[in-house]
Nucleic acid binder design. Structure first.
Lengths: 229, 229
DNA sequence: TCTCATTGTCACAAATCTGTCGAAAAAATG
DNA sequence: CATTTTTTCGACAGATTTGTGACAATGAGA
């Protein structure tokens, strides 16, 4: 899974370190700069997934950084959350008008900022916020109805898709044919149990990949299970 | 340009009226409800573009309304801004975790809320804010009502235009025929579902380009999606 | 009024999916 | 090793779903 990359622009060293630590421990990759111009260079070097921008930094002002980020095509669509002083409503409004996506007023708790960051990422890049299911090397995006393995997208039929999705929602667990019929075909479907085998085979074929190991395990006289590769 | 539709859930009548007035005069279409359950019904009737949700309402609580909005497929992706009391940080964090996009703490100025709403809409549906949207090599200018691909402008009918615009506002996502009917033709239109197919074909034809890949993906038994090329 | 673009439906063709069989293969059993 | 049980595999006909061309109705603009 890709770890979201944050760019933190904050000249209060103590606060910066605190945040860096918290975000890192939540699985984010954080790069920090205390200076507006330096931050712009860093953003140009490696486009971050989200920018945390203190409004009151020395040198190039926050609002100017925001504007320049928006102007450059590479960073024009990177979400920006600004960190502002509580009182300055004007700043906040101006920030939103300039193109920031959001703000958090100081003092804030790291926990709150985390929730905010994740909410914004969820909006902008669902895949980063974990709306997709990942099992081993298979990724399934329910919103886009798309399945890929090792980055390559797979061609997969409707029933196989539902079957795979069900398996991925409950990895490692063994399901009997009748359980699968209930879960995937719907309760009370009058379908031959053997038919499940056929769809398992079709699913296997659909997700087969070069010589990668088959992630679907047959449990003799019990059913099938998906084992993350 | 289309006027953004807001749903305001607020049981403080005075505040509700104030906001209604302000937003209306800024070109928004506002529907108001003082009650959670009623609000859910209203949202189901006509999907709003954004929900303003007071956290402390009588009856069904704000958090519950939020959760239910998220659960229903039709409203799952409608942005929600919650209005909370200043102190309750826990509520705010919980709200963001439940799926709200944003919050504003009371008391707030209408001006600030306006900026916030417009920021969220810009992020989620740029076309509502009058910005041009770009998806892959297709560019759509909602103000000029023009579409171009790789610099060359495309001839495109009204319905196909709305369809494309909707797709471009939600790239990659799969929409069923009935969702498309609701979104593009308007709720409750009594139109044959298969008609969507025909317009998809017309749209495909309109945006076809030399031998460029067709960006509209058919998802069998599910619907259609726009994939950036 | 006439013209022309647009719209919603339909019917048919094409593509794709589904559930079942029976034979072959593989795994347990004794 | 022979037998029994269970799973895999290939094939196929019927069913669903989607693509496409044609057409009549509608309505805006000349």
């Amino acid at each position: 899974m890709s770890t979201p990359k944050l760019l933190l622009v904050e000249d209060d060293t103590a606060l910066a370190e605190l945040l860096e630590y918290r975000f890192a421990s939540e699985g984010y990759e954080v790069r920090t700069s205390a200076d507006g111009d330096e931050a712009l260079v860093m953003a140009a070097e490696e486009t971050p997934d989200l920018v945390l921008l203190d409004w009151m930094i020395e040198g190039t002002s926050g609002i100017e950084v925001c504007r320049r980020l928006r102007r450059d095509k590479a960073t024009a669509h990177v979400p920006i959350i600004m960190l502002t002083a509580r009182e300055a409503e004007d700043d906040r409004v101006r920030g939103l008008e300039t193109g920031a996506d959001d703000y958090v007023t100081k003092p804030f708790s790291p926990r709150e900022l985390l929730a905010r960051v994740s909410a914004v990422l969820r909006r902008v890049r669902p895949a980063l916020a974990g709306e997709t299911i990942e099992t081993g090397d298979i990724k399934l995006d329910p919103v886009a109805h798309r399945v890929e393995r090792r980055g390559r997208s797979l061609q997969i039929g409707p029933t196989e898709y539902r079957l795979l999705k069900f398996f991925m929602e409950h990895p490692r667990r063994v399901f009997s044919r009748s359980q699968l019929l209930d879960a995937v075909w719907g309760t009370g479907s009058e379908i031959e149990e053997r038919t499940v085998d056929v769809h398992i085979r079709r699913l296997r074929k659909a997700i087969a990949f070069d010589n990668a190991r088959d992630p679907i395990r047959t449990v003799r006289s019990a059913g099938y299970a998906l084992e993350p590769v």
